[in-house]
Simulated scan of single mutants.
Amino acid sequence: MTAPHRFILVVAAGRGMRAGAGVPKQYRALGGDMVLARTLRTCIEAGRVLAVIHPDDAALFAEAQRSAAADSCLPPAFGAETRQASVHAGLEALASHGANEHALVAIHDAARPFADAALFDRAFEEAARHGAAVPGVPVTDTIKQIDRDGFAAATHDRAMLRAIQTPQAFRFDLILAAHRQAAQADLRAFTDDAALMEWAGHRVHVFPGDPSNMKLTTEEDFAAAETRLLLTCPDIRIGQGYDVHAFVPGDHVWLGGVKIPHDQALSGHSDADVLLHALTDAILGALGDGDIGQHFPPSDPQWKGAASHLFLRDAVRRVKARGGIIAHLDGTLVCEAPKVGPHREAMRTAIAEIAGISRDRVGVKATTSEKLGFTGRREGIAALATATIRLPIAP
């Protein structure tokens, strides 16, 4: 079974509000990265990915896809009122993209960002062997069935019980046929694809899952996941960056991702955002991955006039690609003018959005050079920056 015959359907159409107010849980930040971005980043290593999303979430999905560098994803399908209907819509979309009886599909919850590529490989291998396979972990608590009055009615042998996870993998033709059959029978209550397959008469093999493959449902789950990420990224690194640009005639400057009216502009091959350049170099320094000039050389015409948020976003992507976290970004502008204070919070917000972190993890400060040097003579602006990142320990 070659990679082109492996499809992954990511179910991301739910509202997920039990995790707290705000955006649906799959679009919430986890360790400075969107939950869905973390999920997509693993999925694209394991097969061709199609996400099922809510029609209102197209912009959020595009942001997650960009953060995960998941341009290879197939165009998303739109979900329906229930998970079952959303999965069915996704399967039909996959059929239109060439999935057939020779294909396997793994159906995965967007809110399980800790599933690794090895788990997907096992799921596909077991599905190829059995037609339907799901990961399960042993149950450690005693499980009791209760009656309507809340009294214990039965105690089940936990040795024979498993807590079922995703990805759940199937022969594509079998799971699509089962969903079509259930839709035709107007059965809509299945919350688990394995249960639907059992209803359709198929045996489902349960293979060993991964206890760390947790599903994010509540605020407590998010808190536990944040703690886990910190424990898995113990390598704390700090990088520094410095940049300077001279003034030229103009009517605005870009600082910290914010366009500020001014009686001069800054000279540079890109938009000359001196603060974003310094922050980019600080992250690259923490990674030990060269500098901004190495990755975006001013001799390359494609970067002429480019928005500097592209450079910072690329540096952040490099951290995430190594399984890391942006812990904090701090920048200082050195200039006599323009006044930074009125724009400080807008800069913090812009930098936080570019880096995919909360605003309380961004510092922006400003000072003058007491009219000394080129900044004191109002010939340009300098910026200093530090970046604190956390990385996993390399094997």
Rank of each mutant, 00 (worst) to 15 (best):
V274F: 14
V258F: 03
H269R: 08
L255D: 00
P298A: 07
P297K: 01
W303S: 12
P298D: 06
A278Y: 09
D289S: 14
A286M: 02
L287T: 13
A265F: 05
A265N: 04
V274K: 15
D263M: 13
L284T: 00
G257N: 04
D271M: 02
T280N: 11
D300Q: 12
L266K: 08
T280R: 06
D281V: 09
I292F: 05
G268H: 02
D263W: 08
D300R: 12
A306G: 03
D291F: 06
H262C: 14
H295T: 06
V258W: 06
H277C: 11
I260L: 13
G305N: 02
V274R: 14
T280M: 14
T280Q: 10
H295G: 10
W303N: 12
Q302V: 15
D300M: 08
T280L: 10
D289Q: 11
Q294I: 06
L266I: 05
A282W: 01
G268L: 00
D289F: 13
G285E: 08
D263K: 14
P298M: 09
V274M: 10
D291G: 06
A286N: 01
D291K: 08
V274I: 15
Q264E: 14
F296E: 02
G290W: 15
L284N: 04
G285Y: 04
D289K: 12
H262Q: 12
L255K: 04
H269Q: 02
P297N: 09
Q264I: 12
H269T: 13
G257F: 03
I292H: 01
G288R: 11
P298W: 07
S270P: 08
K259M: 08
A286Y: 02
T280D: 09
H277P: 03
Q294V: 10
L284E: 03
Q302D: 10
Q264N: 15
G285H: 03
F296Y: 04
Q302S: 13
G305K: 13
I292T: 04
S270I: 02
I283N: 00
L287K: 09
H295Y: 13
A306L: 01
G285D: 07
A286R: 06
D281W: 06
D281I: 14
H277R: 14
T280F: 11
D273I: 12
G305R: 04
L276R: 03
L255S: 00
